[in-house]
Design a protein around this nucleic acid. Structure first.
Lengths: 245, 245
DNA sequence: ACACCACTGATTTTCGAAAATGTGAGCATC
DNA sequence: GATGCTCACATTTTCGAAAATCAGTGGTGT
């Protein structure tokens, strides 16, 4: 039945709830990349027991948001330049494929969902103007819009993978906001993307999504590239250096 | 750091060990697809406690080998025809990409690993002749060979995803062995694949791997297609029908 | 001075009992 | 006869204490 990972994580169990909250904290960088996650701390932060925490953490490891080592516990996955580049390439591959298939299979309802998602995103942006991209609410609607584009691709496996990649990438975008100097206007890109997809022009849409993804990554690197770790990540080594700051 | 899922699962903790054993049991179909996994049963089967089991199960869910629903527990992921087809398409996409990149980046050591892996697989096949494909040992060496082909692709994210797909696909291959009527000789295909990859002929290699994957799937469908479920899988519904058999 | 070992405190991992939840049977009602 | 309700049982989920493991410290021998 393919990957039933349920990216929402809200499976009405307590661990699912903690997973959900923890994930938001990680992708919003409220839990800083590279920080050690001690159980005592987390326990009072989320008000649940060891086992429940452990369960949520395990699932986050599978999503690539947390890493764990042997008997040494967990830490928020650090942000690496090399990881961002890897992520970018894979996202281009996967999103292109998903968009191609969606254009092939999508029906009227699919188009309607895209237009609706764009409208919601566009209106919110107008309301929040200028610092809209810092808002968590906008992050959700932006994510929804991009997902609507690929939602008709008819591959649960690919879609599930795509969602995880998108989430991981979001942490880098979020981090770069803080150091932002300039930000290119993405609303035009989004509109063009929508129009091209609905016009069923697959090659053009694939080009657009590639440019969209790669340019965003370049922006991130320009804004925050110097703050990204450069990979010398032995697990115990980093713990001290991070705890120190 | 990317996806650090550690497909071996042996992170020297007890849960890691259980994960490892359980995964083998699922892949080898010792735990039958679609069966409900009750804690009492698993507890004495693997001789660990609730929490430890739970932890291993969560990780298996992330790998797509187990599915879980709300407060209803876990079950071995069923095998669906539609899932197999989805899996096949995605594997073609991902393996082609990985092979292309490996051919681009691979060095002498990479070639050596491929040749060594092929040799190990080939010799074992000769020793086991005729029913080699039922052997668990061969499954390992066959997996190692395919992985060696793509191992130089320089994308942890893609490789990790590929490994999970390969594993999920293995369950279908394993199941079809039991109902096997005929089996095409794959050793020639493997040799050609190896030679083409080492000759750095990317387009040809991509064609070969696609044919290899798709033909294997067709074989599986011919042998065992009628035994695959056809997707009407509400969670509580299937429980009774399976428990009954 | 340097390497090695044992010990201590901090932290993670595991356990099994207790709480929460789902499932199905039996009964009342329409 | 079918539908909805309540209760008892089976099963999962959560909890916090106990065991296992790791990291750092001090002492000993060379």
């Amino acid at each position: 039945m393919a990957a039933k990972t349920d990216i929402k994580g809200t499976d009405e169990t307590r661990a699912g709830d903690v997973l959900h909250r923890m994930r938001l904290d990680i992708i919003s960088c409220a839990l800083k990349p590279g920080t050690r996650m001690r159980f005592e701390t987390l326990k009072e932060l989320y008000a649940v027991s060891f086992s429940t925490l452990r369960e949520a953490l395990q699932r986050l490891v599978a999503e690539g948001l947390v890493i764990s080592e042997g008997q040494r516990g967990f830490m928020v996955a650090p942000l690496y330049l090399s990881d961002l580049q890897d992520l970018t390439d894979v996202r281009v591959l996967v999103d292109q494929e998903c968009i191609g298939r969606s254009i092939l299979h999508g029906d009227d309802e699919w188009e309607a969902q895209i237009i609706a998602a764009f409208h919601r995103m566009d209106r919110l942006k107008a309301r929040l103007n200028d610092l809209y991209f810092m808002s968590d609410e906008w992050a959700v609607l932006h994510g929804d819009f991009h997902r609507s584009l690929v939602s008709a691709c008819r591959s649960p496996t690919l879609l599930d993978f795509r969602d995880k990649l998108f989430q991981r990438a979001h942490r880098y975008r979020r981090m770069s906001c803080q150091f932002r100097t300039k930000w290119r206007p993405k609303d035009v890109e989004h509109r063009t993307l929508m129009e091209t997809v609905i016009a069923r022009d697959a090659p053009a849409a694939k080009n657009l999504i590639e440019r969209h993804i790669r340019e965003t990554t370049e922006n991130v690197i320009q804004n925050a590239g110097q703050f990204l770790s450069t990979e010398p990540t032995a697990f115990p080594g980093i713990l001290k250096s991070i705890a120190a700051e």
